[in-house]
């Protein structure tokens, strides 16, 4: 029971991070119907900005954790937002209206480009940072000494994710921008005729997705303490899996899918073997695609004649 609780906490933390990245996939898919394979790399860049920013802030003497984390989050979101905008502007917008395969290839190219760019600039070696937030609560302690812990960092990750999700849902449902995004999702031409600047709406979608990925990048940097230029690939594929699992195009679906993948991984590594946790996550994806191709919360696409 205690062990289960511990894995639940670990799984939720992991799931929150996957969910944050998955939102970027699902939003971009919703609005322009393509998979942005460079999104994992955007997350990786967010993590790198976080490492650099933590070091610079440390040198500048800002070591009070809340201030440092807030600053790093802002910096990282700003940088990756610019990356997200640039990727859309130069790799995808020229291909708008091209066959669906073209932007997909362009996205894979962008992903390779960004990976190698970071590798060349920052080196291939693993980058560590000292722990920023330490300590936590012990929830239950068993007689034999096994304790269920939740660290302050885990609480921070989960709370940040919940807050961002709430803000995001409000943005999509209650603001003109969110309404424009949903309108563009359904009929871009008509949205344009009603005065919505479609290109700018799409750009802003990329910017928002990138900013959320940056938050995930910062959290991972603090959580694991080490990053390298290749972390975007696996995290990207996992988050993409989460988006498909939840039903691609659906925001609550992305979050739910992220949590599901995180929990599956945590429980699998807790009860079976840690080596096969990725196999477990992806097997679930295969099963879902076979039995529920639209995902958990996706709406079936009905073609009207």
């Amino acid at each position: 029971m205690e062990y289960f609780l511990q894995q639940l906490i670990n799984g939720l933390t992991l799931g929150a991070i996957y969910g944050l990245i998955a939102i970027g996939y699902t939003m971009v898919y919703g609005i322009i119907g393509m998979i942005n394979f460079a999104h994992g790399e955007i997350y990786m860049i967010g993590a790198f900005v976080a490492v650099i920013a933590f070091i610079v802030l440390g040198l500048a003497g800002i070591t009070w954790a809340p201030a440092a984390i807030a600053l790093v989050l802002l910096l990282s979101m700003a940088f990756t937002a610019v990356y997200g905008w640039t990727v859309e502007r130069f790799a995808y917008r020229p291909l708008r209206g091209a066959p669906r395969l073209a932007p997909l290839i362009s996205a894979i190219g962008m992903s390779i480009l960004l990976q190698n760019y970071v590798q060349l600039l920052q080196g291939a070696r693993v980058k560590p940072i000292p722990p920023v937030v330490q300590g936590g609560f012990t929830i239950i302690e068993r007689a034999d000494g096994f304790a269920v812990n939740i660290s302050y960092l885990q609480i921070l990750i989960i709370l940040t994710t919940v807050a961002l999700m709430a803000g995001f849902t409000a943005l999509i449902n209650g603001t003109p921008l969110g309404r424009a995004q949903r309108a563009c999702e359904q009929d871009k031409k008509m949205a344009g005729l009603l005065g919505v600047d479609v290109d700018r709406t799409i750009s802003l979608t990329f910017v928002m997705g990138a900013a959320l990925a940056a938050v995930a990048g910062v959290m991972v940097t603090m959580y694991y303490g080490v990053i390298d230029f290749f972390i975007g690939f696996l995290a990207g594929v996992k988050a993409f899996t989460a988006a498909v699992l939840g039903g691609i195009g659906s925001l609550p679906g992305a979050m739910l899918g992220g949590l599901a993948i995180g929990l599956i991984e945590a429980f699998w590594s807790g009860y079976f073997s840690i080596e096969y946790k990725d196999v477990a996550a992806f097997s679930i994806l295969v099963l879902v695609l076979i039995f529920r191709p639209t995902g958990l919360l996706g709406r079936p696409e009905i073609e009207k004649v």
């Binding site: 209650g174 603001t175 003109p176 921008l177 949205a191 009603l194």
Partner: peptide, 19 residues
């Protein structure tokens, strides 16, 4: 409401005020 996107977007300062 989508049809009133432009005036609302202006009033909401690109959705910041709306949020």
């Amino acid at each position: 409401m989508v049809a009133q996107h432009r005036p609302l977007m202006r009033a909401s300062a690109f959705s910041v005020a709306g949020l």
